[in-house]
Design a protein around this nucleic acid. Structure first.
Lengths: 209, 209
DNA sequence: GACCATTTCTGCGTGTCACGCAAAAATATG
DNA sequence: CATATTTTTGCGTGACACGCAGAAATGGTC
């Protein structure tokens, strides 16, 4: 039916690829949350995404990578968001706002509660040892992009100056610490104040309390 | 022959365990560096360490974990070293000195050049994707211990205050950034000034250059 | 020095997995 | 509609993680 529409992202081919990628990732998360990671075979994930088992490995080289993929996408958005902030904003202000914005965007993702599903996913990645590495790897990738964005913003050179990667690394650490605290809070708390505090302290130069 | 010597670590049993653990780890690194990771089977590693293949998995649950084990041990020393520093020393000073001290200790490890072998090992872990996750995992574990040490030193609470984990996370990031720069320096440079600069910037509150 | 409890090592079997390869299907281009 | 490119699929192979249970080694005791 379509003839030459194409350009709305990169053509139908690219779009379908992204769709299956996301479908596989969601399927992996869903099944892992339902049954527990060890009771999910690659075969099941592929079936849930209506794809052959072999195709799964064309997209991900392990179950863990598939599950972490959504987390990676989320983290990537953060760097993208930073590039969009006005240059007038002070760096740490921009960083903080980027994180918070990206958190809001994540709200209306799937079908279930806002970030209930997300929290469950994160918990899964933290509890299962085989997923921890994948999550850390995703964080590292996102941190690289973040460093590039920071370098661009501050007019520094990622390959020569330590500064952009230091800020990116510290920011990543701050986000991880805030999330960690958020996850272990027994009377559950909102994550935003935690993020604000963590990044605020960094911006203030980590003064001893 | 021995009767009741025992206490010099934790008894002969514990010592032999550590020995095989280290032997397995070294064997894994050595073989991986020589042949490339993909050409090393668990069987080979076990054979090199004079142990049955099944025993390998009693110590490590993957090739990658075995290789990262040395890195983990090294990183653990850092937190231990921090506990030893005099309480009079300012925190960042103590952190910097701990890293530098631990770097010096690492000098006289194996048989080859001082840290030539170490550098090779790190390169291996960074280049092989399947090892990156393991190294990050090791870093994360070391960071936890570091956070505990910092909390102890500053009289803060790891479970309630964000501070100790923020400092630990930022420090970990600084070390990673410094190492990264060290590895990619084409006319090779010494790592110490890089570490000093990275941690120095953190201590100064990450001022924009 | 012999004896028992505990811990560690080992061999075997099993289910899972990652990946190379080549044919088939889908999509793009002209 | 025809052809080129990319993606999906099926099949086969080698490697691996791990449970289980017996053998071996070690530590402490009489």
């Amino acid at each position: 039916m379509v003839v030459h529409v194409s350009r709305e992202g990169q053509g139908l081919r690219e779009r379908k690829k992204q769709e299956t990628r996301i479908a596989l990732s969601w399927a992996a998360i869903k099944l892992a949350v339902e049954r527990g990671l060890e009771n999910v075979r690659v075969e099941d994930i592929a079936a849930t995404a209506n794809v052959s088992p072999r195709t799964f490995n064309n997209y991900f080289s392990s179950k863990g990578e598939a599950i972490a993929a959504r987390h990676l996408d989320r983290a990537r958005l953060f760097a993208q968001e930073l590039r969009r902030r006005p240059a007038s904003e002070p760096l740490w202000e921009a960083i903080k706002n980027s994180v918070l914005t990206q958190l809001s965007l994540g709200q209306d993702y799937g079908d279930g509660q806002p970030d209930q599903q997300w929290q469950t996913g994160i918990r899964l990645m933290i509890s299962e040892p085989s997923l921890q590495g994948e999550m850390l790897k995703a964080n590292a990738i996102a941190e690289e992009e973040l460093a590039a964005a920071i370098a661009e913003r501050t007019g520094t050179d990622v390959t020569r100056d330590l500064y952009p990667r230091l800020v990116a690394g510290a920011t990543g650490a701050a986000i991880r610490v805030a999330m960690d605290q958020w996850l272990r809070a027994d009377p559950p708390v909102s994550i935003r104040p935690l993020i604000e505090e963590a990044i605020g302290r960094l911006a203030a130069g980590l003064p001893e309390p």
